[in-house]
Computed example of a mutant assay.
Amino acid sequence: MICYGRISLTTPFLHQAAERGIEVVLLTETGGLGARLASPTTSDPQIRRAQYTVADNPARSLLVAAGFVTGKLLNMREAVLRAADAEDAEALDDARSIDSLADRVSAVDDAHELLGLEGRAARRSLYVTICCSKWPGSGVPAGGPRRCVRGFP
């Protein structure tokens, strides 16, 4: 299980996850590793060997990466929809654009193109998830609400 941003997990949940061999990874709001919680029995050398085998095969590696990127894009879209006002036409357009980018993932031929789709989606989601006044600690910067992110190339 991967948890992204400001989240809370209960102690009983963490105990259940450990008992069932479910790893819990906590990522910061910027995607950096915060913590990794794993029971002592979750390390399986055969799984690690299989991961290296996939990583050594560019076609299989791209397929796995495409699955991760699709999930990330759909999560970005949901974050935009949750943070935006229903009347915010630009945010709704951002959500539709991210959805369209997610639809294009399956047609990607290489990892660089895949990363490009992910980057474009991240750019579309940044305004709402950083500057939207509904989120704690956020706010409209000087120069207008969309200038904070839209000014990036």
Rank of each mutant, 00 (worst) to 15 (best):
D99R: 04
Q51L: 02
A122R: 15
P12M: 00
E87M: 05
D110K: 08
A107E: 10
C131E: 05
R60M: 10
S61I: 05
P45C: 01
F152A: 03
E29P: 09
A35Y: 14
R77M: 09
G119T: 14
D93H: 08
V105S: 02
V128G: 02
L63N: 13
A65R: 10
D85I: 01
A111R: 15
D109R: 01
A84L: 03
L115K: 03
L33G: 07
R6A: 14
A59N: 14
A142C: 00
L26E: 12
E87H: 03
S138N: 12
G32K: 06
L27I: 15
L81G: 01
A89P: 01
P40V: 13
G67E: 06
G71S: 07
L117Q: 01
T53A: 04
L117N: 06
I7H: 12
C132H: 11
S97K: 08
R82D: 15
N57A: 13
L81Q: 11
L117Y: 11
D56Q: 06
R120N: 13
V105D: 05
R120S: 12
G137M: 03
R77V: 04
R104C: 09
L114P: 05
V24N: 06
A102E: 05
P45L: 11
A83L: 11
H112T: 15
A122D: 14
P45F: 11
R60V: 08
E23G: 07
L117W: 11
M76L: 14
H112Q: 14
C131F: 05
G119A: 11
E113M: 02
I2M: 03
R150Q: 06
T10H: 00
Q46R: 09
L117F: 05
L92K: 12
M1W: 12
E19T: 14
M76A: 08
L117V: 06
G34W: 07
D93E: 14
Q46W: 14
T41A: 08
I130E: 03
I98E: 00
G31W: 11
P58C: 01
P12W: 03
A84R: 07
I47V: 15
D93K: 07
E113S: 10
G5N: 12
S61Y: 14
Y127H: 12
T129W: 10
R49M: 07
G67Y: 01
L126T: 02
S43I: 15
A107I: 00
R120V: 13
G119S: 10
G144V: 10
G32D: 13
T53Y: 06
A121K: 04
R147L: 11
A95D: 04
Y127Q: 08
G151C: 12
K72A: 10
L27W: 13
E118N: 08
K134F: 07
A38S: 12
E113C: 08
L73W: 03
Y4C: 02
L73Y: 06
L114G: 00
E29H: 07
V80L: 09
R96M: 09
I22C: 03
A66W: 06
D94M: 02
I47S: 04
L101C: 02
G144H: 00
P153F: 15
L117K: 04
L81C: 05
L74D: 09
A91T: 09
A18V: 13
T30M: 03
V69S: 01
T11C: 05
D110N: 05
L27K: 10
P153A: 13
G71C: 01
S43C: 00
G139V: 05
V24G: 08
V25L: 10
